[in-house]
Design a protein around this nucleic acid. Structure first.
Lengths: 243, 243
DNA sequence: AATTATTTGTCCGTATGTATG
DNA sequence: CCATACATACGGACAAATAAT
């Protein structure tokens, strides 16, 4: 298990505070010396932490005038740490989930089409292995969720477009984070959040799988679109139930 | 003018070296003391720089066993610094441009549709102002390029989806970086790289503009798709000419 | 299983640079 | 143009982790 360094811990602590509005955009942070006292770390560690936040465009340091929180639209949202802070944030977690799904809807069908067109034999073998794992874990929701993740990943990685693959990998991790949070916050509805694996869903995956393997880009795109639309409906339905 | 700190300079220097293969994934970096000597900075600064690279998942530091370069697929490509290193990289800059365009093709038509559906009056006014600037700069390619950027941005920001907006903003910046590099590396073909503003192109923008303002999501999506496809053809044509 | 060597991680005293009032 | 307040930079010391012996 990887141990977090102190600067990482501080990055997370301050990052969460900013996301949750404890410190708002435009406001100034205390000076480094104070901050390091507040968090019980040395100035060195605090400076490294601030640099970590600056790299994510959460803050900007200015000599003499101090370090300020940048406006929200500057933040580097496509960063796993930032996403985890957002998904843990109390407010509007569902909006975050829907926004992610919107992006997913734009990209993943295209990614599936690219995979159908570009996948090498090696990549196809990996996709096949992942699909077979899906078939075998139909009765174990937890194992199925993991297998589902890997299945989608194997398709994403076959796109031969690293930019798209990197993005979708991050997106899927964000989806998991966000779903985890939603599930734990209202565990009465757990069955709804965790997509229940059924033979019907497996068949959808089979359609996608066969389209990709046979190189049918149009079909792969269309099946993927339907799959994501279904997930979105599920999210929206759960949301309404919350009211 | 903003002055770069030393650690930022070092981040860029090492980042570029890694992207250009001077140091390859899996390889170990010299220890901090050596590095700080090599680059003529203190260990403090070097540590901050390494933290900046670690935040972008370019490297990982391990106690005792040293700091290693992570595999390419771990890199945080959706980061302006990383994109700038990639676009300056000699090798396969065109692939980078095409990959970006692929992602753009997935997202921006959807973004246009969302903007048509969700834009507030205020946002529509901004889009209108940007479009009028386009009309006025038809005879000045440089001013037109800037106006074109702002026009697309004004639509992106009207999506009411911060995740998508942040992504597309980054993507457009990446496109500009990459195009700049391509243009300077082969300035014989400048006319081809820089899309020449014509009344026909303006009319395409007008179609997009009117679709968004009138709330016709389908039309907005379709026009945007056509526009990006044209750009892609242009890139591919220029590429073939290079051979 | 215990020891050592190597490298990152942490702390702090001090000095310099820079934008603001 | 000066003073002030802050970030930035330096370097020596020590702590912690872990690969090698």
């Amino acid at each position: 298990m990887r141990v977090k360094s102190r600067s990482e811990e501080v990055v997370n602590a301050i990052g969460k505070d900013i996301v949750n509005g404890v410190i708002s955009p435009g406001e100034r942070l205390p000076k480094v010396e104070e901050l390091s006292e507040d968090y019980g770390v040395s100035r060195t560690v605090m400076r490294e932490a601030l640099q970590g936040l600056a790299a994510r465009k959460i803050i900007r340091a200015n000599q003499r005038s101090g370090t300020v929180v940048l406006p929200r639209n500057e933040w580097q949202l496509w960063d796993l740490s930032v996403m985890s802070w957002l998904s843990e944030s109390e407010q509007r977690n569902e909006k975050f989930l829907l926004d992610l799904t919107e992006v997913r809807l734009g990209l993943e069908p295209d990614a599936a089409a690219l995979a159908a067109k570009n996948a090498t034999e090696e990549e196809k073998a990996k996709i096949t292995a992942c699909f077979e794992r899906l078939e075998q874990t139909l009765d174990d929701p937890k194992a199925w969720a993991a297998a589902d993740y890997d299945f989608h990943l194997s398709i994403i990685e076959a796109t031969n477009n690293q930019l798209m693959a990197g993005l979708l990998k991050l997106l899927h991790k964000g989806l998991i984070l966000s779903r985890e949070k939603t599930v734990t916050s209202l565990n009465e509805h757990t069955e709804l959040q965790q997509e229940q694996p059924t033979t019907e869903i497996l068949n959808r995956h089979r359609n996608l799988y066969e389209a990709v393997i046979s190189g049918d880009a149009e079909q792969a795109k269309s099946v993927m679109t339907d799959m994501i639309l279904r997930v979105r409906q599920l999210i929206e339905a759960t949301q309404e139930q919350q009211i």
